[in-house]
């Protein structure tokens, strides 16, 4: 029998992981909901941002907060770059071409990273204390990124609901043509959306590098999981993706303690497959 304290600790770790997963899933889902293209290489952009923070903070000794800001800026730039260079030329083409193009970017980025930085795992070491609440250890290296994720998600929510541009982003995802009749240039809305999605990738990268080591194939670790969360939540459904992030992170975290980390992923994928059969439109979709 497993000590309930361990389970509670695992559940807490699951919540903290869920915050970062939600950041990734909502960034990817935002872009999909508005532009209707899945960025297969989304987490590979996160990987590039992680390398940036590694070099700035670990190698060149920049303060952590400055490295994180640089990562966010790089993410936003990468988002705009991907949209202008890769997405714009193929906006009107068949979905399979769009999939191949963003998939091609994934292989390009992985090879590019291997070429530049080798396959060595690189990490930023930071020692922060843990504190204990009722026998459960809470490491600050996880609590702080979680808190930042939640603040960022609240920021995203406020941006999408309170500002003209944010509301326009939601409007475009519902009716592109009607929004152009309101005077919004769709291409400009797409660029803003890509920048926001990229910015979230940059922030996620800055938070992940303090918990995971980065290597050229980092995208393979979190990419499928992120995509799975988006599908589970309903592609384009932001609330669904948020809920699904925590479901997945809890499964991985709890199963990881009860059996093993590998088993955690196996169970997560099994749950995903079952849910796809049971609720193809996502967990929050209305049954038709």
């Amino acid at each position: 029998m497993i000590d309930p304290i361990f389970l509670a600790e695992a559940a807490l770790n699951g919540i903290m992981l869920g915050g970062i997963l939600a950041l990734l899933a909502l960034g990817l889902n935002l872009i999909f909901g508005v532009i209707d293209i899945v960025w297969i290489a989304y987490v590979d952009l996160v990987m590039l941002c992680m390398y940036l923070v590694y070099y700035l903070v670990q190698v060149y000794g920049w303060p952590v907060w400055l490295g994180a800001l640089a990562s966010i800026a790089l993410g936003a730039l990468l988002g705009i770059g991907v949209h202008l260079l890769i997405i714009t030329p193929i906006l009107g083409s068949a979905p399979i071409n769009q999939l191949l193009a963003t998939g091609g970017l994934l292989f390009f980025l992985q090879s590019f990273a291997t070429f530049l930085w080798t396959t060595d795992h690189k990490s930023v070491r930071m020692s922060l204390p843990s504190f204990e609440v009722g026998g459960i250890f809470v490491p600050l290296t996880r609590l702080i990124p979680f808190a930042i994720s939640i603040v960022a998600l609240i920021g995203l929510y406020l941006f999408l609901t309170r500002t003209f541009v944010g509301t326009a982003i939601r409007a475009v995802s519902q009716d592109r043509e009607a929004m152009s009749l309101m005077g919004a240039n769709p291409q400009r809305i797409y660029i803003v959306t890509s920048a926001v999605g990229g910015l979230m990738a940059g922030l996620a990268g800055a938070l992940l590098i303090f918990q995971y080591s980065v290597h050229p194939f980092f995208g393979g670790q979190f990419g499928p999981l992120t995509f799975m969360i988006c599908v589970l939540g309903g592609l384009g459904n932001m609330v669904g993706a948020f809920v699904a992030s925590f479901i997945m992170s809890e499964i991985i975290s709890l199963a990881g303690v009860i059996w093993s980390t590998e088993m955690g992923y196996v169970i997560a994928f099994v749950v995903f497959i079952v849910m796809i059969f049971a609720r193809p439109g996502g967990i929050l979709a209305r049954r038709s």
């Binding site: 509301t167 939601r170 519902q174 009749l181």
Partner: peptide, 26 residues
């Protein structure tokens, strides 16, 4: 020139106030 298109083409998931807000996007 403001165009009220065939079939109205509102933003269905946006609130009434948000639809009006989008009308004043420029």
């Amino acid at each position: 020139i403001a165009h009220v298109p065939e079939g109205r083409r509102l933003f269905p998931a946006l609130s009434v106030a948000e639809n009006l807000k989008m009308g004043a996007y420029l």
